[in-house]
Simulated scan of single mutants.
Amino acid sequence: MTAASTARVDHAVTSGTFSLDGETFEVDNNVWVVGDDTECIVIDAPHSVDDILAVVGERRVKAIVCTHAHDDHVRVAPELREKVVAPILLHPDDKPLWELTHTQYLWDVDLADGQTLEVGDTTLQVLHTPGHAPGAVCLYSPELGCVFTGDTLFHGGPGATGRSYSDRPTLEASIRARLFDLPGDTVVHTGHGEDTTIAAERELLG
C-alpha cells in the first residue's frame, strides 16, 4: 500500500496588466505553488512578489517555473529569484517573448519536453505545448491528479492566439497530442480563471 502524498497545491489570484503588440489589458493571474510543508515550486511569476510570497510562506522555493514568457507570467520572476534565491526555468523557444519584458536578465535553466521536476514527494512532468507561445509548457503531476496549463488550455477551450508568436492550429495540435491523452479526471489548473478537467475540455474541443 502506497503512502498518501504529502504534497499539495496552494493558490492565489493576483492582478496587473498584460501587454503585447502595442496593446495593454488588465488581467487577473492565478498563482500556483506546489510542494509540502518545507519546500515548493512556484509556477509563473505574475504582477506581485508579495502576493506570491504570501502563498509560499516559510517554505524553501526550489524553482520558479514559467509556463511561457508573456509579461503577465514572468514580470516579477527576476525580483522573485533574488528574494527566494531559486532558479528561473523557461523553455528556450520563448526567448523572443522573454526579451520583450527582460532585456537585462535571462532565466537560469532551460526546460525541455519530458523533463521531470521533483518537489516534496511529487513529480511534475514537463510537456512542451507550443501554440499560445513557442515555448509554452504544461506541468503534469500524476500523484496529485492535476496539470498546470498556463495559457495553453482554459476552462472553455484553448488559450488565445492571433497575436505575435502564437498559432491556433499549432495550439490545438499540442492540446490534442499532449493533454487529451491524460486521464479524463485530471484537474486542469489554468493561468487565468477557474479550474476544469481534461474530460470536459476534450468534449468541448472534439
Score class of each variant (00 low, 15 high):
75 R>Y: 03
113 D>K: 08
121 D>G: 11
91 H>E: 11
129 T>A: 03
101 T>L: 06
81 R>F: 01
123 T>S: 10
104 Q>H: 13
120 G>C: 14
83 K>C: 10
128 H>R: 05
105 Y>M: 09
85 V>F: 08
122 T>F: 02
127 L>W: 10
84 V>M: 05
114 G>W: 13
125 Q>F: 12
111 L>N: 02
115 Q>E: 14
129 T>P: 04
76 V>R: 01
75 R>F: 13
112 A>Y: 12
89 L>W: 14
112 A>G: 09
76 V>S: 03
74 V>A: 07
87 P>C: 10
94 D>F: 08
88 I>H: 11
82 E>T: 06
111 L>C: 09
119 V>D: 04
88 I>W: 02
135 G>M: 09
134 P>F: 03
116 T>D: 01
78 P>G: 14
103 T>Q: 13
132 H>W: 13
113 D>C: 04
110 D>T: 13
98 W>E: 02
94 D>L: 00
89 L>H: 13
79 E>M: 03
99 E>S: 12
93 D>N: 15
137 V>R: 00
104 Q>V: 09
92 P>W: 08
115 Q>G: 08
80 L>W: 06
130 P>T: 02
96 P>V: 06
112 A>H: 14
79 E>L: 12
81 R>S: 00
90 L>Y: 10
121 D>E: 07
81 R>Y: 00
118 E>Y: 12
107 W>V: 01
87 P>Y: 05
88 I>K: 05
91 H>G: 07
97 L>R: 04
93 D>Q: 14
94 D>Y: 04
106 L>K: 13
107 W>C: 01
134 P>K: 07
95 K>P: 02
121 D>K: 12
108 D>Q: 02
75 R>C: 00
118 E>H: 15
132 H>Y: 15
99 E>T: 04
125 Q>S: 08
135 G>W: 07
127 L>S: 03
106 L>T: 13
123 T>A: 05
99 E>N: 13
93 D>F: 15
127 L>C: 07
112 A>E: 14
96 P>M: 00
111 L>Y: 03
116 T>L: 02
76 V>A: 05
119 V>K: 09
101 T>Y: 05
83 K>N: 02
115 Q>C: 12
108 D>M: 08
102 H>V: 12
100 L>F: 15
86 A>F: 05
104 Q>D: 15
83 K>I: 10
119 V>Q: 06
109 V>W: 08
110 D>L: 08
123 T>G: 01
75 R>L: 14
74 V>R: 08
132 H>D: 13
122 T>E: 02
82 E>L: 09
122 T>K: 06
102 H>K: 13
119 V>S: 04
94 D>P: 02
122 T>N: 02
111 L>V: 00
90 L>K: 01
96 P>T: 03
113 D>N: 09
78 P>D: 11
